[in-house]
Design a protein around this nucleic acid. Structure first.
Length: 558
RNA sequence: AGGGGUAUAGCCAAACGGUAAGGCAACGGACUCUGACUCCGUCAUCUCUUGGUUCAAAUCCAGGUACCCCUGCCA
């Protein structure tokens, strides 16, 4: 399987639209944008949007902007701006010179609001939030016009200027568009354009006392940046008429179009910012970068590669119907990438001692082990074979179950890249716990898996020389939730938290070559899965590895 | 209930009036010094449903049904 980015050139409705726009000459180039609000960390759902926007730009030879949709300083912080930029870069995308902030357009937006006021298309509202809500009507009943709706233009101009000047307290007035209080589309019932907020802004500081709402900022900002295809998620679909109303009524420099796609839903996790934040704040996870979280920082810390996430986004496609992607698709994606690129190593996670009685004490033999079974160009490394080695406890069964083909009493097994050993006896303590296995090895069995009498050995297991191993901590992560859809309505998602979503093993025995493991390198610990050092907690001398994902295992399924 | 959307295999998803792509999963087999990888094969007489138009319908028309979104001074 190839790990190249372009997994398939499958079509989707956005590509079709862009293709037609380009061919018909409606657009001469493609300009998209990824427009996060800097009020939290990015997650895998954002990755889908990032891949769509940057991907489309790349595919059609256009460009993609990174734009912070920073119109609500009450929720936004510089920390999030920094994290978002880092995550987008990590994913492998480059916005070049095109980094923008909606807030850089505040003055222009203000002037356009004045235009609307001047033309009688916007007015200053004195009703409070509760009253506005009551006047708005319901889904089935039309709204009622505000008593301030027909305020004279001059008065509106005066009041709006004074709102800007900071003369009024938060919440005392808003600027509203004058559209249609009876519209069946509620977002057209005189939507709020500006609110008063005496709050400093992370990007423009204390310059403003009033801030535009999303609807009044997004489309115009798209127009200013020359965005041709403004791609957002489905819940903004009913805002599209409003998006277009502003473009129709303001002297904007270009005419962007909004298109919507279905957001990503992943099983066994939660994706809403609110819930993610709740998990972090309540200490239910270790932080925004907890390796069990679907945040990009979490996936990154766990060991997911940017390539695997991009491939995942390509695989799941883009559509307009609500869909649920099983996490196993994400897991399979990182397996595919890592299988290709990860050097192999041996690590025994739950060690049990095996003593080779016919190997001299105090000696060691150097063996060569391939770093990748299908890629000789990745070379090999030296491992040591000696009298005492560690093997995985699971790889020995005193009473083998049917189909088990690893080590059993008086059975034989091949030590990967080493020799065939035969188990002679089991030494236990008085409680019956296995202390060690006593074995013999066949010095002639270095190559292949055939015994001296020509039989083929059934099993191959990983191992590590006791005297040449290092002890390390390994963290095994599982799904954060035990239910495929913890988010389903009517239940508290927290009740579905998987109590065993992390298992910490502190007595793992790793081959010595891992002593100087590079912190970015993902390894395949043979037969156990893919691992990488935890970037925060792993230190020279006390290594900590995270399991990115297990290997596929058809045996345990049976 | 008003408005806006969506229904194609277990999960995604293509198709644009010409006879149901592809991926993942699953299943069967081969290969293998990782029960991994890889390889081969199987997997929708059928597109939510009921009618209609047509030589021909997943695609067009009419009526149902199910689910999602919208009543923040959030985005």
């Amino acid at each position: 399987m190839s790990t190249e980015y372009a997994v398939s050139a499958s079509n989707n409705f956005l590509k079709t639209i862009i293709d037609e726009d380009l061919k018909s000459g409606k657009q001469s180039s493609v300009v998209t944008r990824f427009p996060p609000e800097p009020n939290g960390y990015l997650h895998i759902g954002h990755a889908k949007s990032i891949c769509i926007n940057f991907g489309l730009a790349t595919e059609f030879g256009g460009r993609c902007h990174l734009r912070f949709d920073d119109t609500n300083p009450a929720k936004e912080e510089q920390e999030y701006i920094d994290s978002i930029k880092e995550s987008v870069r990590w994913l492998g995308f480059d916005w070049g010179e095109h980094l923008y902030y909606a807030s850089d357009n505040f003055e222009q937006l203000y002037q356009w609001a004045v235009c609307l006021v001047t033309e009688g298309k916007a007015y200053v509202e004195d009703l409070n939030a509760e009253q506005i809500r009551a006047y708005r009507g319901t889904l089935t009943e039309p709204g009622v016009e505000s008593p301030f709706r027909n305020r004279p233009v001059e008065e509106n101009l005066n009041l709006f200027q004074r709102m800007r000047d900071g003369e009024f307290p938060d919440g005392s007035r808003v600027l509203r568009a004058r559209i249609d209080m009876a519209s069946p589309n509620i977002s057209l019932r005189d939507p709020v354009l500006y609110r008063i907020l005496h709050t400093p802004h992370p990007h423009v500081g204390n310059a403003w006392k009033i801030y535009p709402m999303y609807d009044f900022a997004h489309g115009q900002t798209d127009a200013i940046e020359g965005i041709t295809h403004s791609i957002c998620t489905l819940e903004f679909e009913s805002h599209r008429p409003l998006y277009e109303w502003f473009l129709d009524n303001l002297p904007v420099p270009s005419r962007p179009r909004q298109y919507e796609f279905a957001r990503l839903n992943l099983t066994y996790t939660v994706m809403s910012k609110r819930k993610l934040q709740e998990l972090v704040l309540n200490g239910l996870v270790s932080g925004w970068d907890d390796p069990r979280l679907p945040t990009l920082e979490g996936l990154r810390r766990r060991g997911y590669t940017p390539t695997s996430i991009r491939n995942f986004c390509e695989q799941i496609g883009v559509g307009r119907s609500d869909s649920w992607i099983d996490v196993s698709v994400l897991e399979e994606s990182v397996r595919a990438d890592l299988n290709d690129s990860a050097p192999r190593a041996m690590a025994v996670l739950r060690p049990i001692k095996l003593v080779i009685e016919n190997f001299p004490d105090g000696q060691a033999e150097e063996l060569q082990a391939a770093n990748h079974p299908q890629k000789p160009e990745m070379g090999s490394r030296t491992i040591h074979f000696s009298r005492e080695i560690w093997i995985e406890a699971d790889d020995f069964m005193e009473v083998p179950s049917k189909g088990f083909h690893r080590l059993t009493v008086s059975g034989e097994v091949k030590l990967r890249s080493g020799y065939i050993v035969t188990c002679r006896r089991v030494i236990k303590d008085e409680l019956g716990n296995i202390l060690e296995l006593r074995c013999d090895y066949d010095p002639a069995s270095r190559e292949g898996i055939h015994t001296a009498d020509g039989r083929k050995v059934k099993g191959v297991i990983h191992w590590v020389s006791a005297a040449h191993s290092i002890t390390a901590e390994v963290r095994l992560f599982d799904r954060l939730f035990s239910d495929p859809n913890p988010d389903r309505s009517g239940a508290d998602y927290k009740q579905f938290l998987n109590q065993n979503s992390v298992e910490v093993l502190t007595e793992c025995k790793l081959e010595a070559s891992l002593t100087c493991a590079d912190s970015e390198t993902r390894y395949q610990f043979e037969r156990m899965g893919y691992f990488r050092q935890d970037p925060k907690d792993s230190k020279p001398g006390s290594l900590v590895f995270n399991r990115v994902v297990t290997l596929r295992d058809v045996w345990v399924k049976k």
